[in-house]
């Protein structure tokens, strides 16, 4: 969990201009907090697919799985098992 979370936080800080001071809880919505939008989402999904060598099935492409740090960590853990 910790390592994936660190990777995702570093990605968001570098690629989506999230300030290092931004308070982001693990369940906060990335889209509602203005951290990513639909184009950012495509890039995030590309990054995850490449970094973890996984293919993301269409039915898993949902806000529950990709709109929060918790959701992302869980889905990566599930798909890399």
């Amino acid at each position: 969990m910790g390592e994936i979370k660190e990777v995702m936080m570093a990605y968001l800080q570098n690629k989506s201009f999230m300030d290092s001071g931004t308070k982001l809880n693990d369940d906060d919505s990335l889209t509602m907090k203005g951290i990513i939008d639909s184009i950012g989402l495509i890039e995030l999904i590309d990054f995850i697919s490449e970094k973890y060598s996984i293919e993301i099935p269409e039915d898993l492409l949902t806000p529950e799985n990709f709109d929060s740090i918790n959701g992302i960590v869980n889905i990566i853990q599930k798909l890399t098992k």
Binding site: T31, S38, L41, I42, E43, E58, D59, L61, T62
Partner: peptide, 23 residues
């Protein structure tokens, strides 16, 4: 646009619509 091909899956279409509605 760094991505040359984007397969618009149903869930993504719905989600991006809702994001724009919120914006």
């Amino acid at each position: 646009a760094p991505n040359p091909i984007i397969d618009l899956q149903v869930n993504f279409i719905k989600w991006s619509r809702n994001i724009f509605e919120k914006q």
